[in-house]
């Protein structure tokens, strides 16, 4: 482990140094919305944010992602593969969102087929996470195996302290990276203990949702429970909870053509909340109403994920709570599940 620091005002020097070797993605504010974008000008980076509106999954799994391109010539077709992915740094991602990287690694390499787009990106990405000094009241990361300074899925963890950023290398990749950066100085040893205390204080202040770690087995018996009628009656069936969820990764595949016979096959974000998601050409739809669609979202994250990959498909960022147009709160579902299962046990 290596600990370094940099004064806040010099942060663009650090970004500029990174840009020499990497594509750098970081939080940027556009029209009042914070999202992760490639940083072209080091000044653009916006580190005074609680969390991005659009999660940084968009770097690994962009809203529009080219699977391959093609060119039709006469009767023939030529397939053009994507260019290799460049070395990339994701700078300033919150530790909750970075959990998604290990989650995606699990999911996209699961089974017989590996997803080359996500996995190639993962291989080439170094993650510089930024500890979360001000968790929102909607955050519940510590209930889903995360934390505001969780080191599990970052290569380097930054903690803001007074006028400085403190950088701690977590992985070898992270250590190799911060060794190279000239604008960093050795960490002020006196502050390190204070930082550790600060981290602990912030983490312990986040309320814990009881029983969430055991929700997987509790859900097993609740598939046909009337609770889903209650939980889904206000849902209007939009995709904001899933599109803005850092772990949701379902997609649609389509072809885009240009006039000249060239084109590309792309995948775009799609969601289990739309009726079309499961509508078959025959007209049959296994999930025709909102109830099974709302239930699918919960089961996929909290039952199927643990069953298949032994992880919870939720990082506790609270985006679905903040962005739901009808103020549906996923924490209420946790409470219902807990209440129902404790009743049946008792």
């Amino acid at each position: 482990m290596m600990q370094k620091m940099i004064s806040k005002e010099k942060i663009s020097d650090l970004i500029k140094e990174l840009q020499k070797e990497f594509k750098v993605f970081g939080p940027v504010k556009e029209e009042g919305v914070v999202l992760f974008k490639e940083i072209t000008d080091a000044k653009e980076i916006c580190l005074d944010y609680s969390n991005s509106k659009i999660p940084a999954k968009s770097v690994l799994f962009p809203m529009i992602d080219t699977l391959f391109s093609y060119k039709k010539e006469g009767k023939g077709v030529k397939i053009i593969e994507n260019p290799p992915y460049e070395k990339t740094v994701i700078f300033g991602i919150r530790p909750c969102d970075s959990m998604v990287f290990s989650l995606f690694k699990n999911f996209f390499s699961f089974g017989k087929y590996k997803d080359p787009l996500v996995l190639n990106r993962l291989k080439n990405i170094t993650i510089i996470g930024m500890g979360c000094l001000e968790p929102r009241t909607t955050c519940f990361c510590t209930s889903v195996n995360g934390g505001p300074f969780n080191k599990e899925s970052v290569d380097v963890l930054i903690t803001e302290f007074k006028d400085n950023y403190y950088l701690e290398s977590i992985t070898d990749k992270g250590e190799a990276l911060i060794k190279k950066i000239k604008s960093l100085t050795d960490a002020d040893k006196g502050d390190l203990a204070k930082i550790e205390k600060l981290q602990k204080d912030i983490e312990s202040a986040i309320p814990v949702i009881e029983g969430l770690d055991g929700i997987y087995t509790k859900l097993d018996g609740l598939f046909d429970h009337p609770m889903w009628k209650m939980e889904s009656q206000g849902c209007i069936g939009c995709g904001s909870c899933t599109y803005l969820c850092p772990t949701c990764h379902c997609f649609d595949v389509l072809d885009e053509n240009k006039q000249d016979g060239s084109g590309r096959r792309i995948r775009i974000w799609d969601t289990c909340q739309f009726p079309l998601f499961t509508l078959e050409t025959s007209g049959h739809n296994p999930r025709t109403t909102k109830l099974p669609r709302v239930r699918q979202r919960i089961f996929h994250k909290f039952n199927y994920y643990p069953k298949n990959y032994n992880i919870i498909g939720c990082v506790g960022c609270g985006r679905c709570i903040i962005n739901c147009p009808v103020s549906s709160d996923i924490r209420n579902i946790f409470i219902s599940v807990e209440n129902i299962s404790s009743k049946t046990e008792g």
């Binding site: 029209e31 919305v33 939009c238 995709g239 803005l244 147009p325």
Partner: peptide
């Protein structure tokens, strides 16, 4: 363009 560029196609507008 500036306004609609942000749209993520969640269709909340339509559904509401």
């Amino acid at each position: 363009k500036k306004e609609l560029n942000r749209c993520i196609r969640c269709y909340a507008c339509r559904e509401a």
